[in-house]
Each structure stands twice: as C-alpha cells, then as structure tokens.
C-alpha cells in the first residue's frame, strides 16, 4: 500500500489492540489488553498509577516495543513497520505528553516548527509561519510566540504542547494525563480546549487519566485498566453504577479522614 496517501475510512476502527502483553523485567504490566478506537470517538482509559496506561499509549506510536499481541494503527501493524513508515504513521497520530515536553532550549515558535521540519510535504500549500500562528491562535496563545518555555506557566505550556501536536493535523490524538499537575480551573480550561479541538479537527481521541472530572466531561466511552487487562468497559454513567468494588473505587468521593 502506498503510505504517502492517508488511509481514510469511517468504517474500520482507527486503533485496534489485541492481546497486548508487555513486561519490564519480571514485572508484567500488560497481560493481554484489548482495545478498539472508532472514528470520532473520545475513549478514556482509567487506571491507577503504575497500571501501565502510559506504556499502552507509547506502544501505539512505537516508543515502547511490544512483547506480544497485535497493535494496529490506521490499518498498519506498528511493530512490523520500518522507520520511514513509522515516522509517517506518527504524523497522523498526535501525542500530548504528561509534562507537556516542550523543548526547553527552543522558543515557542521553534517548538511548533519542530514537527514540520521533517515533513516538508505537509507544507506544500502552507506557509510555515502561517501554520505556527494558526495553531497558536487555536489555543489562544498567539502573543507567546517568541517566549521560551521556561517563561510560561503550567497551563500555557500545556496549551503550547497542544498547539505543537495540532500543527500536523493528526487523525488520532493521544493524551497522556492532560490535566495532571494543573489547578482545577486551568484543568477545566484544558478540558474545554480538548473538546473544542475534538470538534474543530474532527479527530478521534484516546485519553489516559485518573481525573474523574476530565473523564466525565470528555468521554464517549471508558475502559478501566486494572491488573493489566481491560477490566471494565462502558459509558461514564454505566460504569458509575457498577457494583464491582474495583470499579467503584474510581468513582468514590474522597472522604476526609475522620480522626
């Protein structure tokens, strides 16, 4: 198949994972995980810290090698791709890292230009500067174009990271804890922004979080990752009514410690 032509379909799932296994040393993190991400879907994966959520989405872009199982993104089996094909798939998949992962030594402009530098084909009809400004405008940070990441607040960094991810107009967006380390107000702003991006760019999203507010607002469907497998699956309302103690634990209000 000619990889230079984007693979587009509304019928087949964008991401398919079957029986994914991954272990680090003697610690088996994923023990046969299955997942399907359909177009225009916002799928939230809930899980405790260290349950292997980050590993899961890193498998999707080839950052982590798979031990066993199938990982198919946009119809391509990720472990079987060569570097060039992998790089191409990566342009179709946006990845928002946990700590924003802005390049400290570069200005906001250079940060946004960075993903474009290896994809001149994406810029055939566009002016690089115009693309950068457009992406920044969509996150409301056009004025910060010449600032360094160190001069930005946590929320602003997250927005710049979003803009950097959007500049290649991905079909799938992977969010790794999009609201972690942010205050509730800023977190809410980011959630609103994610929803707007979802609408404007018409991309499918896979969101990893343990923030229930975020999950409730964004998700069409949720998967609870527990003990290395997809423990429970359903909409927010379905899962919130679950009687399973492990599922209920996610929905429990934090109680003040009674002395």
């Amino acid at each position: 198949m000619d990889i230079t032509k984007p693979y587009r379909t509304t019928k087949t799932p964008l991401i398919e994972i079957y029986g994914l296994r991954k272990s680090f040393g003697s610690n088996e993190v994923l023990k046969g995980f299955d997942l399907l991400l359909n177009p225009n879907e916002n799928l939230v994966i809930l899980g405790k810290s260290g349950s292997g959520k980050s590993v899961l989405i890193k498998c999707l872009v080839g950052l982590v090698d798979v031990d066993e199982g199938k990982v198919i993104v946009l119809g391509k089996s990720i472990p079987d791709l060569n570097q060039k094909e992998l790089d191409y798939i990566r342009t179709e998949v946006g990845f928002l890292f946990q700590g924003s992962a802005l390049y400290d030594s570069m200005t906001v402009r250079e940060n946004l230009q960075f993903p474009l530098r290896r994809h001149p084909e994406r810029m055939q009809h566009f002016n690089e500067e115009k693309l950068v400004r457009e992406a920044l405008r969509s996150v409301g940070l056009e004025y910060a174009i010449d600032l360094m990441p160190a001069e930005l607040s946590g929320g602003m960094k997250r927005r710049v990271a979003l803009a950097r991810m959007l500049i290649l107009q991905p079909k799938i967006i992977l969010y790794d804890e999009p609201t972690s380390g942010l205050d509730p107000i800023t977190a809410n702003e980011i959630i609103q922004l994610i929803l707007r991006i979802q609408r404007d760019y018409n991309a499918a999203s896979l969101i990893i979080t343990h923030d229930m507010d975020c999950a409730r607002v964004i998700s069409n469907r949720m998967i609870i990752l527990q003990d290395g497998i997809n423990y429970a699956e359903g909409t927010y309302t379905e899962l919130s009514k679950s009687t399973d103690p492990k599922v209920k634990a996610f929905f429990k209000e934090v109680q003040p410690i009674s002395l």
């Binding site: 872009v61 950052l63 990566r90 890292f97 700590g99 992962a101 290896r118 950097r164």
Partner: peptide
C-alpha cells in the same frame, strides 16, 4: 520530561 520521546513521535530521530 519526555522531550526525547516527543522528538521521536514528531518524526525526528
């Protein structure tokens, strides 16, 4: 801070 990962996914070795 995952900047190296970020580089990798944006197509730069």
């Amino acid at each position: 801070t995952e900047q190296i990962d970020a580089m990798e996914v944006s197509g730069t070795n």
